[in-house]
Design a protein around this nucleic acid. Structure first.
Lengths: 218, 218
DNA sequence: CCAGTCGTCCACCTTTCGATAGATCTGCGG
DNA sequence: CCGCAGATCTATCGAAAGGTGGACGACTGG
């Protein structure tokens, strides 16, 4: 079973080079090409390739926007983002948009071919040259390991903080806990004191940055 | 210049196997081993290896906790997390704690060796088998593509929201903008109306979740 | 030109918040 | 048993925050 590939790159030469490399493989079939993002989306929806090799820097609708469109589609193809320029914005933007793989253009043809096979297997792939930055960014985005002054809070205070961080007023928290509003105020006060904060807004921000809040997925 | 490596694994056999594999390389030198997290941290601080190969599942202080300690240290070594069990918790936990690389134990010795060299070069490395999940999680964690009701806000309102989301009071915002507090209240009100929110706490949360806030690094 | 819209600004009044003081209640060691 | 510490609860009062109405200039299309 051959892997159906669509190649999107604004440069004629690059498209042909990619086609040559990929069509040399028995299990890979380049079924279409595109010269900009809009064309890539259009043809991908029409031809339903398994994998889209997408240059990120293209005129008109750029690669990242195109990836976003494709990712939103039904039976979305696996997208391999390809770029000459190693910019954070490209890397993170492409992954955020829904790319399954990211490669720099100076990679060997073998690597590119292997990457397409990986993607087709359902796996992801990141260029080793940029893996470090992805890891760093990931760590920075992730909630902290709960090693903080949060342990100073009593269970009640912790609960109140959670509700506060969802935007509930003191009165609403009181109702939710079946206690008086005055009591809630005390709890909020102790929370602020213990955490060294000034207002409930700070507390809400603190809670979110420490990953206390269970973000609901609608 | 040889790469100084510390191997941490609770199983004697695994430690010896790793030592054998790694000491076979001319540019790699296993300078110490450890049988649990605490020992790994202690010896790493003492011997200052370039790379720590850390099993994640260990008695006592586990690997992830140990990685956290090491990452907090000065001249922290690069940590390669190793695990038999491919659990999300291990992968994300290790990276969050500060690991520079993540490999499953069924990897070839060659891959392990190559990984250590990659880490020593300052790059990161993720086992291809789990790269896909890292990408998905990353995409889920990343702020949305800024396609929101935020565009409804005037420049002034946008600025006020930024300050509000840092925890400034109306009075402080007024001072910062050299306008009256009453004016700030109007802006806040319009922000709440436009974004469909109820209180400034909601606005602060909203701003953070949409990545408006430039988090300062002190 | 002028009516309408939009952004910015300010003041008044009500509700909510935040700081403070103190009342119960519970668990723990002497 | 007693005292003490900490958690939980309540009440009061000055300070913010939030809702509302309206003024003023700038820009826009008849």
């Amino acid at each position: 079973m051959t892997i159906r590939v669509l190649v999107a790159d604004d440069q004629e030469a690059a498209r042909e080079a990619l086609r040559l490399i990929l069509d040399g493989e028995p299990d890979i079939d380049v079924i279409a090409t595109a010269a900009d993002g809009a064309e890539a989306v259009h043809r991908a929806l029409l031809r339903r390739p398994d994998v889209v090799v997408m240059d990120l820097r293209m005129p008109g609708m750029d690669g990242i926007a195109a990836i976003g469109r494709l990712a939103a589609a039904e039976s979305a193809p696996r997208v391999l983002a390809l770029t000459t320029f190693d910019l954070d914005e490209y890397l993170f933007g492409a992954l955020r948009a829904g790319a399954a793989g990211f490669l720099l253009k100076d990679s060997d043809p073998d690597v590119l071919i292997a990457a397409i096979r990986e993607l087709h297997q359902g796996r992801g792939l990141i260029d080793p040259q940029v893996t470090g930055r992805l890891i760093s960014r990931f760590a920075a985005l992730s909630p902290r390991p709960a090693t903080s002054e949060l342990d100073l809070l009593t269970p009640r205070e912790h609960h109140v903080l959670r509700l506060l961080a969802r935007g509930l007023s003191n009165g609403e928290i009181a109702t939710a806990c079946t206690i008086e509003e005055g009591t809630v105020k005390t709890h909020v006060n102790r929370i602020l004191t213990k955490l060294g904060l000034r207002t409930r807004v700070h507390a809400a921000i603190y809670a979110h940055e420490h990953g206390i809040v269970t973000r609901e997925m609608p």
